[in-house]
């Protein structure tokens, strides 16, 4: 549905987006991740035909963004970083205006307005001036505006910024509900959001593509070593953490043991080991035989946050060493 080839954008002095290429299949939700200034907004602006690229090209919904921008624009919905609202318009009036701009009219337009008002929970502010809405409501109206013409491809730049927790959940559900018929690219800083909503992640840093993969693959790829979390409790109301630590370290295959937290007589340990070398049964036995209770034993999945930090850090470290070498 989206196919990006070596897309590049240069501003005076800096390269905001540097030769990135990726593909997005129809009906997928893709999370676009990167630290501030990575080039997410710039990439979205190019894919929505707002900014022309300095080099490279892309096809969106089967049309080239340079050759047939009008055809592309007919098939996309876009929620920019700041919702593009006119403060002097009322919500319903604004949605009507946008609907007409996107080519809707008559009964169909009215139907779509009612539908998006309900989906994005803006029905109760239909006759309010947009300039007087709160930030969260503006964001909702922005989202309503993006989906009003039922576009094939949706670009959402930080769609949940400024929303309350309930609305964040509803927006996530809305986005998930739209997947299937719609292809969605959303940028965000909130990593759990990506874990929850997206099937695929694209990570960029300083304009360069760092990784593009499914969430699960990324997690297993980033986890070179295997680690498990073990919660141990003492039987008579007290627990000697160093003793437990020593005991766990003696189990074969175990590398490092770290006590993550301790509450009363319970303590949580993270145990690292080389892949496939550690027997969880041995761990459990060691704990129980020493007279402690084993409350919990589970694999520690690396959070996307850690993966993200690891990937973007190693990338900048790599460029730094490259710089040093060239000097």
């Amino acid at each position: 549905m989206i196919s990006v080839k070596e897309l590049t954008k240069r501003y005076a002095g800096i390269i905001a987006v540097n030769q990135i290429s990726f593909d997005v299949a129809k009906g997928q939700i893709v999370g676009f991740l990167g630290p501030n200034g990575a080039g997410k907004t710039t990439t979205m602006r190019m894919l929505t035909c707002f900014l022309p690229p300095s080099a490279g090209t892309a096809t969106v919904a089967g049309f080239d963004i340079l050759e047939q921008p009008i055809e592309v624009k007919k098939r996309i919905g876009y929620l920019p970083e700041t919702p593009p609202i006119y403060p002097e318009m009322e919500t319903a009036e604004y949605l009507k205006f946008v609907g007409k701009l996107k080519g809707l009219s008559g009964a169909e337009l009215r139907k779509r307005i009612d539908y998006v008002c309900e989906r994005c929970a803006v029905g109760d502010v239909k006759t309010k001036l947009l300039g007087k809405l709160s930030k969260g409501y503006r964001q909702r109206v922005g989202l309503a505006q993006a989906i009003i013409h039922n576009p094939e491809v949706l670009f959402l730049d930080e769609p949940t910024a400024g929303l309350d927790p309930k609305q964040i959940n509803e927006t996530r559900d809305l986005i998930k509900g739209l997947a299937g018929d719609h292809t969605i690219v959303l940028s965000t800083h909130i990593l759990p959001e990506v874990e929850q909503t997206c099937e695929q992640v694209i990570i960029i840093n300083q304009g360069k593509l760092v990784a593009t993969d499914s969430v699960r693959n990324l997690q297993s790829r980033a986890r070179g070593a295997e680690s498990v979390l073990v919660e141990v409790a003492g039987r008579n109301g007290s627990l000697e953490v160093p003793a437990v630590q020593r005991k766990l370290e003696q189990v074969s295959g175990v590398g490092r043991v770290v006590c993550k937290q301790q509450v009363d007589s319970r303590a949580l340990f993270e145990i690292e080991s080389q892949k496939g070398r550690m027997a969880r049964g041995d761990l459990a036995r060691a704990v129980v035989e020493s007279g402690w209770d084993l409350n919990e034993l589970r694999p520690a999945a690396m959070s996307l946050e850690e993966i993200f930090l690891q990937l973007t850090k190693s990338e900048s470290a790599a460029t730094e060493t490259a710089k040093k070498e060239s000097e």
């Binding site: 929505t48 593009p84 946008v98």
Partner: peptide, 9 residues
């Protein structure tokens, strides 16, 4: 809002 106008067909 120019982003809205410029990304509309």
């Amino acid at each position: 809002t120019i982003e809205l106008l410029a990304t509309s067909p």
